[in-house]
Design a protein around this nucleic acid. Structure first.
Lengths: 206, 206
DNA sequence: GTGCGCATCCATCAAATGGTGGACGCGAGG
DNA sequence: CCTCGCGTCCACCATTTGATGGATGCGCAC
């Protein structure tokens, strides 16, 4: 009774690497590969893998989080392990919320990946060791909930737009933009547009 | 007479993938793997590869550009192919300046990598097709040359630091910081700290 | 229906920022 | 030797930004 695994990554090289590292290692079998989230969903429906190993960033098309959500909605739902290069907090949370069973950085040793897959297949959570501390911290101080409008303003802010420009773009007055900024600053606990952009980037908000 | 290739990437999985995809393909042989730039330099000295396939981001330690420079200083110098996930302009230029024979994105097909290695071994340049347009454009309007000090200021700027904080950090007065900022703004052709950070990010300056 | 959160708007004031135009010493290269 | 780029510093002033403390309408949930 081997664990059947589906690989999802937009880089052929990485897929080959994972296959080389994982396939045939005792309890694991790679039963398929997908280069996009859409492809992964179709394949998962047909192949019914036990575990899907999915990159968070999938180039064009839907991202890893959306893919995870779609996969978890299948019957029966495969366990989804997120494997990626980055450790952006918001994305980790997003993946977990979407039903991922774990989160791994790509620079871990192959054994760790195998271990994670086995955990996932057994229905357990698995988080990369170096992520736990950060996770807990992020959990402890949950990401502030920004409104859609605030996110919009934040994104313009990140392009270096002035209040006037933001106002013009959103068809509101500068005063309104300032209000939004005050709210954003309060939620992010900062006191300048630059720093707002910085923490927004750090937390993966943008 | 096969082409001897040394792999340099901080992700074991990617190394395995490259090996799986490249090794034994007729004219190529993988003769070694390194997980850091330092390791790559030592290995290259002993193994004398024809081509080094090197990731631009190598986690801890020296980066791909520094590694490239060191490798090109060897006698005889291997051809260096940069292989990476990102297409940040400044880094491409940096790699080329450091003597790289080419630049590939990781999401290309294995055949392209082989082709690139063969080009490199033959002493030719190889640039990923989708990069050329961007390259030319970057060449045409060369990235402004920022001094070390200006880069320092720019990085602090990107963290959202105020002039006062930058001044404290660099042990200079606020007036000096402003001077640096003015220079940075002029070179980047912007007129606010936020936008400076934005274009610096866009051009890969930081 | 009465809150409550959201988006919108307003005015005023203090602080930070950016623009201008300088000045000096120092080290590398012509 | 002497210029040039760099890092450092200064002053003055216009603009932008952020802080404060409001107000209105709207939709949704209790």
């Amino acid at each position: 009774m081997t664990i059947e695994v589906l690989l999802v990554d937009d880089h052929p090289v990485v897929r080959s690497g994972l296959r080389a590292v994982l396939d045939g290692r005792g309890t694991l079998t790679i039963i398929g590969e997908a280069g996009t989230g859409e492809e992964a969903i179709v394949l998962a429906e047909h192949l019914r893998p036990d575990v899907v190993l999915c990159d968070l960033r999938l180039g064009r098309g839907i991202d890893g989080i959306a893919t995870t959500a779609a996969l978890r909605a299948l019957e029966p739902a495969p366990a989804v392990l997120i494997l990626t290069t980055f450790d952006r907090d918001a994305e980790i949370l997003g993946a977990i919320e979407a039903g991922a069973a774990g989160y791994l950085l790509k620079d871990v040793a192959p054994e760790v990946i195998i271990e994670a897959i086995e955990s996932a297949a057994a229905g357990k959570m698995f988080l990369a060791p170096d992520l736990n501390a950060r996770m807990i911290q992020t959990m402890r101080k949950p990401l502030p909930r920004l409104t859609d409008r605030e996110i919009e303003v934040l994104n313009l802010l990140a392009t270096g737009a002035t209040n006037k420009e933001i106002a013009r773009t959103l068809f509101v007055t500068e005063a309104t933009v300032k209000s939004h900024l005050v709210h954003i600053f309060t939620k992010l606990d900062v006191d300048s547009r630059s720093r707002a952009v910085h923490v927004a980037r750090e937390t993966g908000l943008i």
